[in-house]
Design a protein around this nucleic acid. Structure first.
Length: 683
DNA sequence: GTAATTCAGCGGTAT
DNA sequence: ACCGCTGAATTACTA
């Protein structure tokens, strides 16, 4: 019982040994539970409760197209807190007078139906299962051999998209054909992510892809054309499957999930032509700072109408038409209006983050003179009460950052004691625990018995950093011909192993192929969860595919693992040999993370933030082995990446995997991830 | 280093 | 046909 020095413990800045804190058991030590033999109740998958969904590989890949990054997904809603879920459940129905939703200009005829086109809607309509009608081309072109990408070839984005869509797991089609919900939203965004990155990757290498200069737009257009989208009926109020606090990084994502249809305009409305109504009615707005909006506080928004800017004619008065008219009409009807707040993404200052902040009502509208002297419309929107915090969370974080507001529950401003470049806060606003058990913070993995590299590892000689179009770079070749990271530093093309540049490479530390080597980039904090011990979450919004951290600790061998298991000291063990569930959007392209040789890491005594990441059966983080080029020894790391966009302050979790068979003395532990797809236990 | 500019793009509504 | 609170790269600035 190490609870002794907990209560009167006061961290003395500077003098304090940060790693010495009170024992709090992590989730892994929760009461063991024996597996219930075949649990038929976990039946949300169409294969009838089988724990693994397997679809035989198919893979017609066009020349030059490597198999895709298959983001694992469990489409579980995973919210900050239960209140959010409650609020969602109790969410009001659309308050507007429009009871029947209006279809967006959807399901257009697929353009240029080349061979291999998929008719999404037929899948929906025919048998409802999506299993049978999803035709696959019988295996023709084989998979290109690893690293065999040759000179740049012209690639048709639509062919790329078709191949991707063809490799989609039928369960995705099932979800998409169901009434729209969280699954269809999650899957839609996942497929979009994969397609966007693939197009971006190809654009970098083969230069000549028609229309792929904007992979975000191109990918979005292809998705819409094929009907891979959610909530294609435009409606006022709640959007099924989209939760307050959800974040997006591209405007077209808002369109894909049915939150906000226009790809650019800030006001979405239902026009008179597309509905039975006499007047246009507003649906949603995006406030991105393009106009002179004011933000009084988190719950009030002064929004500026659209128009009055014309790049040819210059400025002019805004007119009461289109979106402006719709907002006015919606105000008179007392309709709810969805609000999406756009902020600059600090991680990528060139980009934006969009936060869905829930429903607002328009309280007032007026005309005023803008700075340029022309009339603009103003709308005062007030947030409907009872909704979970979303944008407010961002404001709070901003205030903590600026030290303007003191935060309750902070135990340590930096539990790494500057071992990381950026501080990691330790906080408990739940109870009186003063911190986790003693451990030494170590930012990286320690391999006490280095082994020779499995493969030859001469490294590259890319002096200015590895370039995506350099076909001769050996590091790129190891990754199958493409850099594994996108230009935005996001995991773009992941197979079972990521090959990064390493000590034997001549490229600089800022090389795009060294993403996991720069230490923490995201501001993380270790916090006390309600019922899972300590956990990990982020102050910053995280893009899907972003590197989060590696699993630091001491490398041990299997014998030691079994010892520790026998002593019931197996918490904090990372075990690469477990079975990692792969319910995939793209089963044919997915390989479970595979390590050249088994890797066991214990972070019991020594570790980094990763040791605090809890298990979830619906995780938002996954791991991949990262092999770095190193002549003298094998240089393997375990890196964690975001599966999807993760809003600030949402707990980060990964799947601990399944141990088969159980080691002597090993017991499964009861899982409290709370997910609807929870397996009930983990190891 | 940051700010302004440029440019190719998209979905949607209205004509 | 026209419009719009894109998004990223490029150029132009300021310091």
């Amino acid at each position: 019982m190490e609870h002794n020095f907990g209560q009167d413990f006061v961290p003395a800045p500077g003098s304090f040994d940060k790693s010495r804190v009170v024992n709090v058991k992590p989730i892994r030590t929760l009461v063991p539970v024996f597996p219930s033999p075949s649990n038929p109740s976990s039946s949300s998958n169409p294969q009838g409760g089988a724990p693994f969904v397997c679809v035989s590989p198919s893979g017609p890949y066009p020349a030059g197209v490597a198999p895709l990054y298959p983001f694992f997904v469990s489409p579980e809603s995973q919210r900050l807190s239960e209140q959010n879920a409650q609020a969602q459940a109790g969410q009001r129905l659309p308050a507007g007078p429009i009871s029947t939703a209006v279809p967006i200009n959807s399901f257009r005829t697929p353009t240029g139906a080349t061979n291999g086109d998929i008719e999404m809607n037929e899948v929906d309509a025919e048998d409802g299962t999506g299993n049978g009608s999803h035709k696959r081309k019988s295996g023709k072109k084989g998979r290109k051999p690893k690293g065999a990408r040759g000179a740049p070839t012209n690639v048709n984005p639509e062919a790329v998209a078709n191949d991707i869509f063809e490799s989609i797991n039928p369960i995705v089609f099932d979800a998409l054909s169901q009434p729209d919900g969280r699954d269809s939203v999650t899957y839609t965004l996942l497929v979009y992510e994969v397609l966007k990155r693939k197009l971006g990757q190809l654009e970098e290498t083969s230069k000549d892809i028609s229309g792929a200069k904007r992979p975000d737009l191109k990918a979005g257009a292809l998705m819409l054309t094929k009907g891979i989208r959610a909530n294609s009926k435009k409606s006022i109020g709640v959007v099924l499957g989209v939760e307050i606090g959800d974040i997006f990084f591209f405007r077209i994502e808002l369109c894909l999930v049915g939150l906000h249809a226009p790809s650019m305009a800030g006001i979405d409305y239902i026009g008179t032509k597309t509905s039975q109504e006499e007047e246009p009615l507003a649906v949603s707005i995006v406030s991105s700072g393009g106009y002179e909006d004011n933000v009084e506080d988190g719950d009030v928004l002064i929004y500026t109408g659209q128009g009055g800017v014309n790049k040819d004619k210059g400025a002019s008065d805004q007119k009461l038409e289109r979106g402006n008219l719709a907002l006015e009409k919606s105000m008179h009807r007392g309709n709810d209006v969805r609000v999406i707040r756009g902020l600059t993404d600090l991680a990528h200052p060139t980009g934006k983050v969009y936060i869905y902040d829930g429903l607002y009502k328009i309280q007032n509208t007026w005309v005023e003179k803008a700075k340029n002297g022309f009339n603009v419309f103003k709308y005062k929107l007030v947030r409907c009460p009872g909704q979970p915090a979303a944008y407010m969370i961002w404001k709070s974080i901003q205030q903590w950052t600026q030290k303007n507001a003191s935060r309750t529950g902070v135990i340590l401003p930096d539990l790494t004691s500057s071992a990381e470049k950026i501080p990691v806060c330790l906080v408990n606003d739940v109870d009186n625990e003063k911190g986790p058990a003693y451990f030494t913070y170590s930012p990286t993995i320690k391999n006490l018995k280095p082994t020779a590299p499995v493969e030859s590892s001469a490294g590259c000689s890319c002096i200015g950093g590895c370039q995506p179009d350099n076909y001769n770079c050996p590091c790129i070749q190891k990754n199958g011909g493409y850099l594994p990271y996108s230009a935005m530093g996001v995991l773009a093309d992941l197979k079972s192993v990521v090959y990064e540049c390493g000590p034997s490479c001549q490229c600089p530390p800022n090389c795009r192929n060294r993403v996991s080597q720069g230490g923490l980039k995201i501001r993380l904090e270790v916090f006390k969860t309600k019922d899972k011990g300590w956990g990990l979450r982020s102050w910053d919004p995280i893009r899907a595919g972003t590197f989060i951290c590696e699993y630091a600790g001491e490398v041990i061998d299997n014998a030691r693992v079994e010892e520790l298991v026998g002593e019931n000291e197996d918490d904090y063990i990372f075990d690469s040999t477990r079975i990692y569930q792969q319910v995939d959007v793209f089963p044919s392209d997915t390989e479970a993370p595979k390590i050249p040789s088994p890797l066991y890491i214990t972070a019991k005594n020594e570790g980094n933030v990763a040791r605090f990441m809890n298990h979830s059966c619906s995780p938002n983080v996954l791991w991949r082995p990262v092999v770095r080029e190193n002549k003298n020894e094998s240089d393997i790391h375990v890196a964690f990446y975001a599966i999807r966009h993760i809003p600030p302050m949402m707990e980060l979790t990964y799947d601990y995997g399944i141990v088969l068979p159980l080691k002597a003395g090993q017991r499964k532990k009861k899982c409290s991830c709370g997910s609807a797809k929870c397996r009930g236990y983990f190891c």
